[in-house]
Design a protein around this nucleic acid. Structure first.
Lengths: 158, 158
DNA sequence: ATTGGAATTGAAAACCGATTTCAATTAGAG
DNA sequence: CTCTAATTGAAATCGGTTTTCAATTCCAAT
């Protein structure tokens, strides 16, 4: 146990959830600027290997780390500002557990995320943001070939 | 609409779900080996932009693509063999929607995943695989410092 | 206190998938 | 057929993750 580890370890557990390596590194450097990014990365890996933390992948290409909490929780993630809000739902956990049992699957980690726009970001944006697709019916290939032809004609966001 | 696009498009919609760019590219090349990876990537992006597909992020850092189905669904993912099983749960969807509403969050995508071991892989492995932590109580930093000291002493997987 | 081997560290390089660039090619309206 | 815009393949770039390696630090045995 070195002093670097102690600092990284404490900082990790005293910070809010889902920090990236980069973010944790910044915080750690405020305590001891000599601690390298790679050491933070390795210590985070150590924490996970040892079962006290876990990786999280929201969809922005960055790996985040959570301390393992007493019960699995979900996240509301904002596409726009990147904010995340945690929530706990025993009902959902139970439903997931049941579903896993049904298939003989041994769950090791739950991942429940709702990606979209937070209240603040909704207000700054037009009303017509796409919502989750609860409707689409046709999945026949040919229908969709026609669809995309039509759609592709109109411009699309880069 | 070029022939490359037609091939990629049909292959995507005729394949099983959650393929990575790489995987789709392999399949596409069996039809026309001259089609480049970047074209597959761009076409996949096009399909998503147009609303017929969506990105999925499981926990392995690789982006996968799903066709948009009639309702959001979850996955049972196997850490060992990588297999995925889909499941639909209106109850979970409703609970998530409710929770989002509660925070004024506008959901655009749900992500519900249970990562662990599938039935087949469980059988090939020792019984002592870690399960999801529904127990851990202590989150006091000092306790955990002690924990990691102890744990770190024993070897860990690289 | 000293020592020697093992573990850990900082810095930099390698890695790897995602994304972009660019010159050449192709589609398709006129 | 011709022209222009869209699309393509190949290669470069990007950005975060992971590994490498020589130097440093730890610590149990002297």
């Amino acid at each position: 146990m070195t002093s670097a580890r102690e600092i990284i370890f404490r900082t990790f557990f005293e910070s809010e959830s889902h920090l990236s390596v980069e973010e944790l590194h910044e915080r750690v450097q405020k305590v001891d600027p000599s601690i390298a990014y790679s050491t933070v990365w390795r210590t985070l890996k150590l924490i996970c290997d040892v079962g006290l933390g876990e990786k999280k992948y929201f969809g922005d290409g960055v790996v985040r780390y959570d301390r393992v909490t007493s019960s699995p929780h979900g996240h509301l993630v904002c596409r726009e500002c990147g904010s995340t809000e945690e929530f706990f739902s025993p009902e959902i956990n139970r439903l997931l557990q049941d579903r896993a049992d049904e298939s003989g699957h041994l769950p090791q980690e739950f991942r429940v995320e709702v990606i979209g726009l937070c209240l603040q970001c909704r207000q700054g944006k037009s009303q017509e943001e796409p919502q989750t697709n609860l409707r689409a019916e046709s999945t026949a290939v040919d229908d969709q070939v026609i669809d995309i032809r039509r759609s592709a004609r109109g411009g699309l966001k880069s």
